[in-house]
């Protein structure tokens, strides 16, 4: 509003000054009457004074406006500085996040490797378990064979026993001459009994072995099941690790991009801040200029007043 008013006044002042100069040239050409000349001069001085007043008003407005602008610029600079600080903080944070994301990425890669190792370990255990099962099966078969051999020995012992009894009967029938033979028969019988006792011992040990083997078979079967479960779990863990590593990778990429753009943002804000500082300087210069203009115009106004008084005095003397 102030600007349009100033423009209006300027236009008015231009038109009037043109009229005045035209009148003055007419008047000076016919310099017959001095009084008339003074009157014209008086009018011109009035006009100058009036124009000086107008310029003073405009200069005052300009000074006020430039002061307001300077204040606004200072405020904006302060805000931009605050924004810069915030951006710097967030840039640092983005850097931290990016570093963390890189570390996490490495860790997740290690985790993936560990899960793979676990899976391989489980497979090795499984192979060992299979081999163990095979060994126990072989042991069971061999135990069975030993059992068969014992049965044969047992049978032989029984036949020996019967043979001894029959020998004893023959010896008894021979009477006195058979006495020596009876002793032999007795010896055969005791041998048969010893064999029987031994086979009985071996059989009981064998039974223990059979029981132990059955228990071992059951345990290896259970172990195999547990190992199979473990393998499944390890596979699941591995898959989870892969998914995790994938999302970690994406997160890390995003963090790196955020870091870069945050850096750019910081640079941009810094440039804005510098520009604002330049604007502030310019605005300060403007303010100073307006003040100087105002002072100059005040002096011009005073000068106009003095001139007016002088012409009035000159006019009254004539």
């Amino acid at each position: 509003m102030a600007k349009s008013a100033t423009n209006g006044r300027k236009t008015a002042a231009k038109t009037q000054s043109r009229v005045v100069s035209k009148q003055a040239s007419e008047n000076f050409s016919s310099s017959s009457n001095a009084k008339e000349g003074y009157e014209r001069m008086d009018e011109m001085v009035h006009e100058v004074s009036r124009l000086a007043q107008l310029i003073l008003e405009a200069a005052t407005n300009l000074s006020v406006n430039s002061t307001q602008t300077a204040a606004a610029v200072t405020q904006t600079t302060t805000i931009v500085e605050e924004v810069r600080q915030t951006v710097e903080v967030s840039s640092k944070k983005a850097q931290n996040v990016s570093t963390d994301a890189r570390n996490v990425l490495q860790t997740s890669e290690l985790g993936q490797k560990a899960a793979n190792d676990v899976l391989q370990g489980m497979q090795a255990i499984k192979e060992h378990m299979d081999s163990l099962t095979q060994t126990i099966l072989t042991l069971r078969n061999q135990t069975k064979q030993v059992g068969e051999i014992i049965a044969t020995v047992d049978d032989i012992a029984q036949q020996s026993n019967l043979l001894a009894v029959n020998a004893a009967i023959e010896a008894a029938r021979a009477g006195e001459q058979g006495k020596g033979f009876a002793v032999v028969a007795q010896a055969i019988k005791s041998l048969a009994e010893q064999s029987k006792k031994s086979t009985s011992n071996v059989r009981s040990i064998l039974n223990e072995i059979v029981e132990a083997t059955a228990s071992a078979t059951m345990k290896t079967e259970h172990g195999s099941k547990v190992v199979a479960d473990g393998e499944v779990f390890a596979k699941q863990a591995g898959n989870a690790m892969v998914v995790l590593a994938d999302s970690m990778h994406r997160s890390a990429q995003a963090a790196i991009q955020i870091e870069a753009s945050s850096q750019q943002q910081l640079q941009g804000v810094q440039q804005v801040l510098e520009a604002m500082k330049s604007v502030e300087e310019a605005s300060n210069d403007n303010q100073k200029g307006a003040k100087e203009l105002e002072e100059a115009v005040t002096r011009l106004n005073d000068l106009g007043g003095n001139l007016k008084r002088l012409t009035e005095r000159l006019g009254s003397r004539n």
Binding site: L162, V165, N166, A168, I169, A172, R173
Partner: peptide, 21 residues
């Protein structure tokens, strides 16, 4: 000749015996 039937012991004089099968 000492022999057993369900834990009960019997004896046969060898004068009667021919053989055991």
């Amino acid at each position: 000749l000492m022999l057993a039937i369900e834990g009960t012991v019997f004896a046969v004089p060898t004068s009667y015996l021919v053989e055991v099968l």
